[in-house]
Design a protein around this nucleic acid. Structure first.
Length: 250
DNA sequence: AAGTCTTACAACCGCGAGGTG
DNA sequence: TCACCTCGCGGTTGTAAGACT
């Protein structure tokens, strides 16, 4: 009979806790959630502790086998969710700031219900948490009055990136702010944002760069035109790093 | 005080994408 | 190519706690 160790591709060290237990192939062939006895509902402090200490020691290469190896009567999905949304280092707990809420509203307007993408703009916040606060009250806040019917039908949660835009980026048309750029891209057509030569056009922070990258990734622009002399102009304008990004857009 | 409603959020479920044999 | 498996995502549900009547 095939051993638990070989089945799970465990090292000698990892297999140690199971050496004396009769855990063999037949058990492991069972799907984790359907046939094995798994606990549901809220996690206890003891379960959290087991999960954290296991992941700190061995990592989480395989969520499916993790519960058994960590001594938890949970399914792998449940473990993953608990780790990702609550136990993972760097997770912020507590109320969202006004700025965070505004960012969520803005991003939801632009991206739709792509919570994991939205979460990538809010370090320490999880997609689940963002989805929750959106469904709890941010959605209501963004709805126009007397629009309950829209709320119920979901008609109010538009994804505005469906209609692509033609954007001209030239030596004198760099965007002043990526948030604005994306907003423009989603609401207007054929836009050109003036860039005053000799001035730093953008106070680029990390999130703004993400925003630009996202705009590219999502294909907000059907067509990007770049004038031949843009590089020279940008360099003369102070060598702003946006030049590098514009280069990537081509 | 007790019952009901609302809010907040943790957790579950089903599905699709991607990897592997 | 196909079947199977795992993972991650988004929708939805369950439930505890607080607010309201």
């Amino acid at each position: 009979m095939e051993s638990y160790q070989s089945l799970m591709h465990l090292t000698e060290e990892e297999n140690e806790p199971y050496r004396e237990k009769d855990i063999y192939v037949e058990r492991m062939r069972n799907p984790c959630c359907n046939m094995m006895e798994v606990k549901k509902g809220c996690w206890t402090a003891e379960e959290d502790s087991k999960l954290v200490s296991y992941i700190q020691k061995y990592g989480h290469q395989n969520w499916r086998s993790l519960p058994t190896r960590a001594g938890l009567l949970r399914c792998g999905k449940s473990c993953r969710l608990r780790w990702v949304n609550y136990l993972r280092p760097g997770i912020k707990h507590g109320n969202f700031t006004k700025e965070e809420e505004e960012t969520i509203i803005q991003l939801q307007r632009m991206l739709g219900n792509h919570w994991s993408k939205i979460a990538s703009f809010l370090p320490g916040r999880t997609d689940n948490e963002i989805k929750n606060i959106w469904n709890t009250y941010l959605k209501k806040r963004t709805m126009p009055k007397n629009s309950n019917s829209m709320l119920k039908s979901g008609a109010g949660t538009s994804n505005m990136i469906e209609e692509k835009t033609h954007c001209v980026i030239s030596s004198n048309t760099l965007p002043p702010n990526p948030f604005e750029l994306v907003a423009i891209a989603t609401e207007q057509k054929d836009v050109a944002v003036p860039f005053e030569s000799g001035k730093d056009p953008i106070g680029f922070g990390e999130s703004e760069w993400w925003m630009m990258e996202l705009a590219e990734e999502l294909g907000l622009f059907e067509e990007v035109e770049v004038e031949e002399n843009w590089e020279k102009m940008v360099t003369e304008g102070g060598g702003d790093p946006v030049a590098a990004f514009i280069g990537n857009l081509i």
